[in-house]
Design a binder for these strands. Structure first.
Lengths: 172, 172
DNA sequence: GGCTATTTGATATAGTTCATAACAATTATC
DNA sequence: GATAATTGTTATGAACTATATCAAATAGCC
């Protein structure tokens, strides 16, 4: 009931380099995890942190965070939306979305335009540079990040995992 | 204490009822999610946030955060460990673990004792109150939280999900 | 033994994320 | 036309995360 497999500690076979990265447990090899191993929330958080960490590393050449990437993705498929719509769709509060957009716009990746029909709101659009950056980021994510996840889990399992996570987020 | 007559402070719900809860997308019902629906990291984060939110609510009677609950769980199964061991096992940095322990200890849930063999380190143990609180929390988590998760996904799927998340955290 | 290096808990501090209140400009509603 | 609501924005605070540093204690080395 405890650990079905006592897999050895995954040791990165890098030679000669010290890793300052956040290791879960560099020592304490014989620590009992107890019911922590059954806690879905704990497993979710740990997996999410690891996936984000890897995402950041894979997409480093284009300097995009997961949140920024999600904004570009959404702007690409939903041109002409305003800040409130994009932000709330991503679960970002409007005040916090302002600085995010400032960063993207100052890098020339997207663009705010006053709506002629409602001059309060800003129409959001990707620039050409934004589309190019997104395309490059997409390729990095697909080939370096998601591909390795699919390899680790198996493609069928990756799809099943995606479905379950979506169900939790939507229906729980 | 000037009372500006600016509206939008506390208005009586006139007409319809708005939900101030953190809804992903209260409006924008026809938003295209694009490849966001395929991003495992995005699904992970959304699911994790939802699960933690529910955890907090379910375990509210004992006033424990997910992080605090994980500490108590670990202390219960690993009595006599020091702060560094517990913290690093949970992925918590030692400096940040100090305040966490302060909070738990000030509530009488756990206890620091100077180790006789190594007087630098603090031996950590649950108090009787800590064990009682943990037992109550466990019951709340099992019956209110995990049970509903199992019901939503199906028990077999919940186990499979747990396994995949663990694999990601350990091997990815 | 004595000197240096390391470890442990702790403090200070800064960065990041997340959340709420409030405001000016604009639009909607009655 | 007066009042209410919305949009983007600023300010601000809480919570979480990360790094440097410190005193006390221990380990390691000669």
């Amino acid at each position: 009931m405890t650990a079905p497999k006592s897999a050895a500690v995954a040791k990165p076979p890098r030679g000669g380099r010290k890793e300052p990265a956040a290791e879960p447990a560099p020592e304490a090899g014989d620590m009992m995890m107890g019911e922590l191993a059954e806690l879905l929330g704990y497993a979710l958080k740990r997996a999410q942190l690891r996936v984000f960490e890897d995402f950041l590393q894979c997409v480093a050449p284009v300097q995009l965070t997961p949140a920024q990437f999600s904004v570009l993705l959404l702007l690409d498929v939903n041109p002409g939306r305003n800040q409130t719509e994009i932000a709330t769709t991503l679960g970002i509060l409007r005040p916090n979305f302002v600085a995010m957009l400032d960063a993207l716009e100052s890098r020339g990746l997207c663009q705010r335009t006053r709506s002629p029909s409602d001059r309060r709101s800003h129409i959001l659009m990707l620039t050409d540079k934004g589309r190019a950056t997104l395309a490059r980021a997409k390729k990095l994510v697909a080939t370096r990040h998601e591909a390795r996840l699919s390899e680790l889990l198996g493609e069928d399992n990756r799809i099943a995992l995606l479905a379950m996570l979506g169900k939790i987020a939507r229906e729980f």
